[in-house]
Design a protein around this nucleic acid. Structure first.
Lengths: 210, 210
DNA sequence: AGCGATGCGGATGAGCTATCCAGTTAAACT
DNA sequence: AGTTTAACTGGATAGCTCATCCGCATCGCT
């Protein structure tokens, strides 16, 4: 059920609209459908037929990013180090949220209007759950952390990074905050005699250093 | 320079406006000045003269809460346990942010339009800095945490709690997330032989349990 | 009571959202 | 190639919210 193939001109306009919207999102401008129509050089009706609301357009813009993220998540499932797998995934998630301004609103919105997006959110959340449970079973992560907490916490980290100010250093800030959350703000009691590690030498190294 | 005493009717209207705005904020409705005028039973002009923008009104609404928070912060400075002092302050901050919907926008907005608010934000931030530095000097908190990170992190925790869904359990969720941030998500290596505590038995007990 | 200054209120224009339909175009059929 | 028709286009326009402006009412003082 692919909802019928678009006519050629329709497809062309669809592409243009999404492309312009992408640019606007990237420069931080809120999406206004009439404005987009003007920029694309099309009528307002065309835009509104393709995307009944600004939110719908935003969701479409966000989809590729969500897809990429999901792919990376599934890739992380292949990692045999549960701690690193989780940390990597969380890092990617936070980076994406901070980099792509379309994600935050889409994540926050409870709209299940676009089936594709809902599906992706579902997929992401279940990958996250899986990774979290593995890490927990490996004793790397506190047991009192629910999968349901994962999304809010990541959103929180991303939000914190955007509040911080300087958009240039935003990704770096987000990484720092994620680390802070993982490691905790309190100093840790000094390591026990570097022995009796429970199968793993404490928490895995810092998330990712690429 | 108290900017002239208001005329009696003006003062009355001012109060009404702020009061109605407070109610709206509490029920989660976004402030619309024309709407408020209608509810108060006054002309639009009156509202706009007192508060040139919705944000200004919001800041006014937020002020009492900010004042209370500042007071509590200064109170925390009297605590001789630096860890507990910081934890208490942060807990109060997060609770306030989650409880009072006017805080988040005001904190995020870089508007220095209302001098009183700016002043309060300053005060809060310097109290936070002081508390953080004391805790750090006492070895309770990681050294790589800048005072500038405090506000963003608290906003992040609050935001995470509001993303989570259920508004009823929001305060509780916020506390949990703050604890998560303080203690870290990773499991801690088991305590060293309950000795060599740096003047204090590890991180202080959970923030506050009132 | 009379008089300025201060504050009030709502009519109003500007800007944005979203709809609707007459006109145009792509593509299937002959 | 010519015809048909379903799909798509574009912009005029109605509905709505924001914010301003200014003639009029009210206050506080003498």
């Amino acid at each position: 059920m692919t909802t019928a193939p678009l006519r050629k001109d329709a497809a062309r306009n669809w592409e243009r609209i999404v492309s312009v919207a992408r640019d606007l999102v990237d420069e931080g401008t809120p999406l206004q459908l009439n404005d987009i129509a003007r920029r694309v050089g099309t009528g307002v009706g065309t835009v509104y037929r393709h995307f009944p609301t600004a939110e719908a357009l935003l969701e479409t813009v966000a989809t590729p990013t969500l897809e990429a993220l999901t792919a990376q998540g599934e890739q992380a499932l292949a990692d045999d180090d549960p701690g690193r797998a989780l940390a990597d995934f969380l890092t990617r998630t936070v980076e994406a949220q901070v980099t792509d301004a379309s994600l935050a609103p889409v994540t926050a919105a409870a709209t299940d209007a676009l089936p594709r997006t809902t599906e992706l959110k579902q997929a992401l959340s279940s990958v996250g759950t899986e990774l979290l449970e593995r890490a927990r079973d490996a004793g790397v992560v506190r047991a009192d952390l629910t999968p349901a907490d994962l999304v809010p916490l990541m959103c929180g980290v991303a939000y914190a990074a955007t509040v911080h100010g300087a958009p240039a250093t935003r990704v770096e800030t987000a990484r720092r905050y994620l680390t802070a959350l993982l490691e905790g703000l309190y100093v840790r009691p000094e390591r026990p005699g570097a022995t009796a590690a429970p199968g793993r030498p404490g928490p895995p190294g810092s998330p990712r250093s690429d």
